[in-house]
Structure formats: C-alpha cells, structure tokens
C-alpha cells in the first residue's frame, strides 16, 4: 500500500470562488448579453443550462470509467473512490439535464417528452444504465470485490456512452428541426460565447463538488484509521454494508 496521503481539500476554496464567479458571469450573459433566439425566443435560454449539464454529466461518466481503469491497474482503492464520486455526481447532473430537457420539450413542443429528439433518448438510456451502479455496489458485500466489479461496470458503461449515442442518433428520423447540436455549429457568436462560459461554469461546478465530496470521504476514512491506530482494531465499529467505497 502506498503511504502517500492525498488531501483533496487543497485548492478547494480557490476553485469554489472561481466557480462562483464563472457561474455568475454565465448567468449574467445568459439573461443580459445573449440575444433572443429568432425561432424560440426566451425559451431558448434553457439551452444554456440544459446542454452544459448534459455534456458535463456524460464526460463525468466517461471520467468515472477512466478512474476505474486506474483501479483495475493499481488495485488502489482511492481510484475506486474517485470513480464512485464521479459517477454519482454525474448521475445528479444527468437527472438535472433530463428534467431541464423535459421542461424545454414541454415549452417548445408542447410535450413533456419527445421521442424524436435522439440526444434526449440516448441520454435517458445512459442515465438508466448508471442508475444500476449503486444497486450493483450495494449487493456485493466484500469491499474488495465490490470495488473490482464496480470498476468493471464503470469501464463498460463508460465505453457504452458514445456507442449508445451513435446507435440512437442513427435510429431517429429528424421530425423536428434540430435547434441544437452538441457542437453548437449553427449558433451565432454571442450565443456560442455564452454557451461556452456556461459549459465551463458547470464543468467547474462538477470539479468543485467532486473535490468537496472526495475531501469529505477522505476525512471520514482518516477518522476511521485514526480510531484504529489509537484504540486498536477492536474499537472500530464494523462498517455497515454500504454502496460507497470506504
């Protein structure tokens, strides 16, 4: 076991402040700088929260898969912890993207859910898949095996993300005009700039929360280890069965 200790709290304050500044700037730009969309009008403002949430969530899932590779290569449980936190945050962001997407669909097409928007459909599939991550972890008792199996799942599911988007996108006929593409290729410059600032803001928010949760989990495991060092193995309350890596 490596004796190097990591502190995730380092730089967290600076990152938090920077995130706050960027998100405040993004919101200001969304409502006061970006022009109203010619077709959709004010509704289109949802785009600046929905799409960044979705993109960051998907990247977070892939990031979780990469961290899981780290676990399988090294066997160091901290990689599993990183993967776990990334996936669980991405799931929260993903649910946010689904709900905001649904609101957008209702506002512009009159339905809470539209099957003709392939990005939304593939996103639903990805979120459904990652919803099984916690139950999987929870149903494996041995912590080492839990980490190993969860990592295998995270890798497979991370690779599934892009594949799924290819398959679903091909399966749809485009009934509705596509108001957004993930690359934002058809956006005017000021909208594009606003979008990019929002994207960076949400990505920084993800990084901040990730570091925050890692610091919290790290502190908790330090307390457990301190207890064992000071009071002996017997003093350690048996860790309840948990889905979270410890």
């Amino acid at each position: 076991m490596p004796s190097r200790s990591t502190t995730y709290g380092t730089g967290l304050r600076g990152l938090s402040i920077a995130t706050l500044v960027v998100i405040a700037a993004a919101l200001t730009m969304v409502f006061y700088y970006a022009p109203l969309d010619a077709d959709q009008g004010f509704i289109q403002k949802i785009f600046y929260i929905h799409v960044p949430l979705a993109i960051v969530s998907l990247l977070g899932f892939v990031f979780g898969g990469l961290m899981a590779v780290g676990y399988l290569l090294t066997g160091d449980r901290r990689w599993d912890m990183r993967s776990y936190v990334a996936i669980h945050l991405s799931l929260i962001f993903g649910i946010g993207a689904l709900v905001t997407g649904s609101i957008w669909a209702k506002a512009s097409w009159g339905h809470w859910w539209v099957w003709s928007e392939p990005t939304l459909v593939s996103f639903l599939i990805v979120v459904l898949l990652f919803c099984t991550y916690q139950p999987l972890r929870f149903s494996i008792e041995d912590p080492e095996r839990q980490s190993r199996y969860a990592s295998v799942f995270a890798i497979v599911a991370g690779a599934f993300v892009p594949l799924n988007f290819i398959a679903v996108r091909l399966a749809q006929q485009y009934v509705h005009p596509r108001v957004l593409t993930l690359t934002g290729g058809n956006l005017p410059g000021s909208m594009m700039l606003t979008f990019l600032v929002s994207l960076i803001g949400i990505a920084m928010l993800f990084a901040t929360l990730w570091k925050y949760e890692m610091a919290s989990k790290n502190a908790r495991s330090q307390v457990r280890r301190l207890r064992r060092t000071l009071l002996g193995d017997d003093a350690l309350a048996p860790a309840g069965r948990s889905a979270a890596p410890s």
Partner: peptide, 18 residues
C-alpha cells in the same frame, strides 16, 4: 452479487438497448 437474479437483467437491459 446477493440479488443476482435482479442485478443481471437490470444492468443488462440498458446495455443491450442500442
């Protein structure tokens, strides 16, 4: 896993969807 009859389909179905 403990709930093996459950976990299999639950993970497998989304993976198979595409």
């Amino acid at each position: 896993t403990r709930a093996r009859d459950l976990i299999g389909p639950v993970i497998g179905l989304p993976l198979l969807l595409p």
